[in-house]
Design a binder for these strands. Structure first.
Length: 802
DNA sequence: AGCACGCCGACT
DNA sequence: GTCGGCGTGCTC
């Protein structure tokens, strides 16, 4: 078994296979599958993952692997398997799948270096470049304008050499500690002898005589209000020594969370929990769909199920949507399980994420709470996987590997023979349909734990407002209600459903719309710097004074951004204190949390925001929720638009009246008769489900069929179309009769970054060979993809059809 | 992907 | 002869 099978870090279709390497004697003992290694690959060195050890190879001349990067495997055998499955399932490269399962910092960094070998003089340019040094980084070459030919010659002559380096990006955090350098009695002597002027030194020394132990440097500095200079003096006198210790960056101070005990469950909750517990104890896999209205206590069920898993000595993964990974959520888990929880979300720095990941890897915690990628937590004895807000589309990764965390969770649940819970107030049609068929176990919680009724929803027909001469964004009813709440000292949440709307710029004279010169999309106006930006590429330009088409000065921005709503809101109700929450105001780290704290402290009357305010917020003083444009996404070219509208309205309605005060919801719309709006206002999920299922059946969309979307992009329009055409043709010859192939058709955004995008959609019920087929088709274009910058990507079960 | 190698054409 | 620009094929 002296051969390692390695997946190398080269993301190219032709390299998507294992490469065999001889394991040198010195690594024989320690090398295990799942470790990262450095291997020679052609003339360079690359990082790779060892996926297996074997005794034989089809190749006669194997190179030796150069080094091992890990002390213990970073991928368990199960995760190695999962990576293979993931790549094949999503038609991605193996290396891409493995990288997606690990924290960023474990990716390799490649560097090239030039070493001077000779003492004899080099060419003039090279002498200037080296400037007396023996090593220089390869990048300096380009900057200095030295010709590559010269370097090549010098290498051939043996005057300089190239070194390929593979570096880990891992940075570990160290904290400096201080401790006495000598016996306490010697310190006491030194204290006696010390100059009376050295007051600070005396104080600190006295402190260490009291407590001759390792103490954090920062603590000492703070306590004595001093600086490093004083410590240095003590170190120089050989009285104190400093030592660096590696520590985890702990973004959540565990002590800060108040311990909570298990709550008493309602009858419904008990009934829901019982079969889950049974599965945990019998080590049985099954998927439970927990359909529970907002406030029905789903989280408490999760917590108690996890407690069972912990007691059994097993581990739990909890997935929550990125957006609702709020301090409130973290507090609940940390409060119950304390330091036994690791939290993984995007607000953490790379280093912090790595540290949390390592706590899992080293088995220092039994629970992980995190966003999508936490589904890959390297646990080995999983007892349960929970996906909260199962319907959220943030569980679908939109770049390669395009996986859905739900599918990965279920696959891991099978691997570990443990239950998987999908929880939601508005399950996806796919999941609910599976529950109806008995593939998943359905549990319904239709009562809130506090027995409060759901807030009443009033629909306002904005067409009536228009007829009555009200052209503002706010209906009369919403305005009156807001004023009343403010008078009563209660708070309001306003949702601007912005998808489909944006602030584009149009000329009132000729109708010209400013579009991105590189993408087929209107530019978005940003007021704070008075510039136009493209959301698909980085193009940006100042807002023009005159129409570029007709030179009229009547060029204005249209649409409804939160900024504009905020303005008209303060005009409408001048006494209202408004907090705006959108991408602009939450860009800075921690800004999100700060805004929410301000609102919780009642520093504002109205919280105005986009989608991000619909999820998981819980403010007791909010008694009114307003939805400004309920139907703005109904007209998008997306078969899920009704479902998304229903979900959003239901979720946001749950933000009102969660506590003592009764809540009310006002939904403004131009299409009050639409079933998703109508049924959301009655919280009637079942009725919506039945109606929407009929629609899906009629138009043959999921869950009645599966989808696969293949997107082709190229700078040449004709190449893009023709390639898509060829793909469609090949697909047609191999798929079954019932399978429908749509296209070639232009992507909804037909040009991005000067590349034309065409697509084809496969609708199928049963097509076991489809993934292999698509993989083979794509591989046929490998040459063109590399040489001609053609791009082809597949998305199995696409969420965003754009 | 990134590198070596080899062919070709331009320039001195 | 010297220098630099591509196109091609390979990586255990």
């Amino acid at each position: 078994m002296n051969i390692a099978k390695v997946i190398v870090d080269v993301p190219a279709g032709s390299i998507n296979q294992t490469f065999d390497y001889e394991i040198p004697e010195r690594f024989q003992e320690m090398l295990r599958p799942g470790m990262r290694v450095i291997v020679p690959f052609g003339s360079r060195k690359v990082m790779g993952y060892v996926v297996a050890r074997t005794g034989e190879s089809d190749f006669d001349h194997l190179k030796e692997l150069i080094d091992i990067l890990d002390l213990t495997p970073i991928l368990t055998p199960e995760l190695l398997d999962l990576g293979k499955w993931l790549a094949e399932e999503t038609i991605s490269l193996y290396i891409t799948a493995f990288q997606a399962m690990l924290p960023q910092v474990l990716k390799a960094n490649y560097k090239k270096e030039l070493e001077r070998l000779t003492t004899e003089s080099l060419s003039e340019q090279l002498e200037v470049l080296f400037a007396g040094r023996d090593f220089i980084s390869y990048e300096e070459l380009g900057n200095a304008g030295v010709s590559f030919y010269q370097v090549q010659k010098a290498i051939q002559a043996g005057d300089i050499a190239v070194h390929y380096q593979v570096k880990s990006r891992v940075t570990k955090k160290h904290i400096t500690f201080l401790k006495p350098a000598r016996e306490v009695y010697l310190l006491e002597e030194a204290l006696q002898d010390m100059s009376n002027k050295a007051k600070k030194q005396q104080e600190i020394l006295a402190f260490f005589i009291e407590r001759p132990e390792e103490i954090e440097l920062n603590y000492i500095l703070k306590k004595f209000g001093t600086t490093r200079a004083v410590i240095n003096a003590l170190q120089n006198k050989n009285l104190l020594t400093a030592l660096k210790k590696e520590v985890y960056r702990n973004p959540h101070d565990d002590q800060a969370f108040e311990k909570t005990a298990a709550l008493t469950l309602t009858k419904q909750q008990q009934k829901a929990l019982k079969p889950v517990r049974q599965h945990i104890h019998e080590d049985r896999h099954d998927v439970f769909l927990l359909h529970g209205v907002t406030g029905s206590g789903k989280t408490e069920i999760y917590l108690q199920a996890i407690q069972d898993v912990i007691d059994k000595g097993e581990e739990a993964i909890v997935l929550v949507p990125e957006i609702s990974l709020t301090p409130q959520m973290v507090r609940r888990f940390k409060g119950r399980f304390g330091s036994n929880v690791a939290v993984l979300h995007s607000a953490l720095s790379h280093g912090e994420k790595y540290d949390e990941w390592r706590r899992v890897h080293r088995k220092e915690v039994q629970v992980v709470v995190g966003a999508r990628s936490a589904v890959f937590a390297p646990f080995e004895n999983l007892g349960i996987i929970i996906i909260d807000e199962e319907h959220e589309n943030s569980y679908k990764q939109e770049d390669q590997p395009r996986y859905h965390a739900r599918d990965v969770a279920i696959h891991r649940g099978e691997n570990h023979q443990c239950p998987v819970i999908l929880g939601s107030a508005t399950p996806t049609l796919e999941s609910y349909a599976r529950a109806q068929k008995g593939v998943y176990q359905l549990t319904t919680l239709n009562k809130r734990t506090n027995d409060k009724a759901m807030p009443e929803v009033n629909i306002v027909d904005m067409r009536d407002e228009l007829h009555a001469g009200n052209r503002s964004m706010f209906s009369r009813s919403l305005k009156d209600n807001m004023e009343e709440r403010i008078k009563r000292g209660e708070q309001i949440v306003l949702l601007l459903n912005r998808r489909g709307y944006s602030t584009f710029v149009m000329c009132r004279e000729c109708g010209h719309v400013k579009e991105c010169p590189h993408c087929d999309i209107a530019l978005t106006f940003h007021k704070y710097n008075n510039r136009l930006k493209c959301h698909y590429c980085s193009f940006e330009e100042p807002m023009p004074m005159y129409c570029p088409s007709c030179s009229s000065d009547l060029i204005r921005f249209f649409g409804t951004g939160t900024q504009r709503i905020e303005e008209s809101l303060t005009q409408l109700i001048p006494e209202a204190r408004v907090l705006r929450m959108d991408v602009d105001t939450t860009r800075r780290k921690g800004a999100h949390e700060k805004l929410l704290t301000q609102f919780a402290n009642k520093e504002a009357d109205i919280l105005l925001g986009t989608q991000m305010i619909a999820k998981g917020l819980d403010f007791e003083n909010v008694t009114l929720v307003g939805v400004l444009t309920a139907d703005s996404m109904l007209n998008l070219p997306d078969f899920r638009s009704s479902e998304k509208t229903f979900q959003l309205l239901t979720q946001v309605s749950g933000r009102a009246g969660r506590h003592e005060l009764p809540g009310e919801v006002i939904v403004q719309t131009y299409t009050p008769e639409h079933y998703s709006i109508e049924m959301a206002s009655h919280y009637n999920f079942i009725q919506f489900y039945q109606h929407e299922m009929k629609v899906r059946k009629k138009f043959q969309y999921p869950p009645y069929v599966f989808l696969a979307l293949i997107t082709v992009s190229h700078q040449n329009h004709v190449t893009a179309v023709q390639t898509t055409q060829k793909i469609v043709k090949t697909l047609r010859t191999y798929v079954g009769e019932d399978t429908v192939i749509l296209g070639p058709s232009p992507s909804p955004i037909s040009r991005v970054k000067d590349r034309y995008r065409w697509q084809c959609m496969v609708k199928y019920k049963q097509e076991p060979q489809l993934r292999t087929l698509i993989y083979k088709i794509i591989r046929q274009f490998d040459e063109e993809m590399r040489k001609d910058d053609l791009q082809i990507s597949a998305d199995m079960q696409p969420y965003q059809l754009m």
